[in-house]
């Protein structure tokens, strides 16, 4: 399996104000309760206080790049509760997409 990104679970009451990219890792979407809320349009529902933020690169990335991204998000003042690395196998995504 090849590492291509990371889902970072960011604690926030509203959609986090994150950068569009961190090095090679680009912000693809943010979801709340499994439903995409960024980029717009966001469904109209009450958010729970944790957002899944997907950072992805078409080319393979290193563990160090993921570590660096997590450090940068923390430096921006956000608390994170968990992260999950995203893998590809023979060009097939090994993770689900949001609604």
């Amino acid at each position: 399996m090849n590492l291509h990104g990371v889902d970072v679970y960011v604690r926030s009451d509203d959609i986090p104000n994150l950068d569009e990219s961190y090095g090679n890792l680009r912000l693809l979407f943010m979801s709340n309760r499994g439903t995409k809320v960024f980029p717009p349009p966001a469904p109209k529902f009450k958010f729970i206080g944790i957002f899944r933020c997907r950072f992805f690169s078409e080319s393979e990335v290193t563990d160090q790049e993921v570590d660096q991204l997590l450090t940068e998000i923390t430096k921006q003042g956000y608390k994170t509760s968990q992260f999950q690395k995203l893998f590809m196998l023979d060009g097939v995504k090994q993770f689900s997409e949001p609604y």
Binding site: M1, G34, R52, Q94, P98
Partner: peptide, 9 residues
Amino acid sequence: AQIEYIVAP
């Protein structure tokens, strides 16, 4: 919520 991952082979 359809949040699924392959975390290792």
